[in-house]
Simulated assay, not measured.
Amino acid sequence: MGWSALALRVVVAGTPGGSAPAVEVVCEEEMTFGAGLANTPVDIPLDDESGEPVAGRIRRVDRFWLITNLSRSRTYVVENEEGSGEYVCVPPGRADMPVPFTRSRITLPSPTGLVCLSVTAPDPAYLASPEPSARPAHRPDEPTSAFGLDEHAKYFMVLVALCEPRLRDSSSPAIPSTPEIVRRLQHHGLCAGITEAAVNYHISYLARRKLRVRGDTRSARDAGARINWQRAAVVSTALRFRLVREEHLRLFATADADDETGAERHPPRRHQAYASGAAPPGPGNISSKSAS
């Protein structure tokens, strides 16, 4: 059966063999989900014996959808499967909460594990953009980009490397260290030969000048704590405002190919000491003159 591009589709996630049938929800239609009983059937049955017979409702409204939590004790989580860790919580009894995601995963906690539903909504609508030739000339009072990032600059490559773990796995808390970023970028044409001092400089530049992250870093106990806070703030800001997205990982394609072909010729001897227990050089031992 072919699905309409405007269909809202719901499927139980994690079923053996991925054989669970998808359910289509048409506009203004409502579907219930839960464990179900013989005298209390549901539209989307879940393998959740300890859960409510009717755990919740999904209602389609135009191009978006609403969720109702019919549980008296459980909070549901709706995650954005296309984003960088965004989610909304649906507390017990919450009715008709709008969900702003196109591809979502509803997670219900259960004593036997997590029970999940995947929901795919119709593509969102956007305002039509005028053709380049029809656009008026830039006016002095016209708003410009809030952050003004240059995607062809070295600092942007450093930013993508910082965000890479979260882009590949939105639940990952990992933030790469300076040596890890150097290893990631050292074979990239734009960043070939980049140093640890240069990476630290670019991160500081992003935090202070481009993303303008705010916080009292003076309260940190040492320079290392300030640097860690700054990195976390840069990653959080970049992902929240979608300044770095999954498609930017394609910038590493050339670097990955070069890394595979040159791994045997150029083993990463410099960083083998870190794996054996030696600490990488701290910020105080790096000369700013070596930044490139």
Score class of each variant (00 low, 15 high):
47 D>R: 14
42 V>Q: 04
74 R>S: 12
23 V>W: 10
53 P>E: 07
27 C>Y: 05
62 D>R: 15
92 P>W: 06
16 P>W: 00
64 F>G: 09
83 G>H: 07
41 P>S: 11
8 L>W: 07
83 G>K: 06
69 N>W: 04
47 D>Y: 03
44 I>K: 04
84 S>G: 11
53 P>C: 05
36 G>S: 08
7 A>L: 02
71 S>Q: 09
15 T>H: 02
51 G>W: 00
76 Y>K: 06
93 G>H: 08
51 G>K: 03
34 G>A: 10
11 V>Q: 13
59 R>S: 10
15 T>I: 03
42 V>A: 04
40 T>Y: 00
8 L>D: 01
75 T>L: 03
51 G>V: 10
39 N>Y: 03
74 R>G: 01
84 S>C: 13
43 D>R: 08
56 G>L: 07
9 R>I: 14
38 A>K: 10
76 Y>H: 11
28 E>Y: 10
36 G>K: 09
47 D>S: 12
77 V>F: 02
55 A>I: 02
13 A>F: 05
51 G>Q: 03
50 S>C: 11
69 N>M: 10
47 D>T: 12
44 I>P: 01
89 C>E: 13
77 V>Q: 11
63 R>A: 11
23 V>G: 02
32 T>H: 04
34 G>R: 08
50 S>M: 09
71 S>M: 06
58 I>T: 08
32 T>V: 07
60 R>M: 09
25 V>N: 04
4 S>V: 02
22 A>V: 15
36 G>P: 06
47 D>L: 05
36 G>Y: 07
8 L>T: 15
63 R>W: 00
68 T>P: 06
70 L>M: 13
86 E>Q: 15
22 A>W: 01
11 V>I: 14
80 N>M: 08
13 A>L: 05
69 N>S: 09
36 G>L: 07
5 A>F: 03
18 G>K: 05
39 N>S: 13
7 A>G: 15
69 N>A: 11
85 G>A: 10
11 V>R: 14
89 C>L: 14
20 A>I: 02
9 R>N: 05
86 E>I: 03
65 W>G: 02
24 E>Y: 01
31 M>A: 15
31 M>D: 00
55 A>P: 02
37 L>H: 06
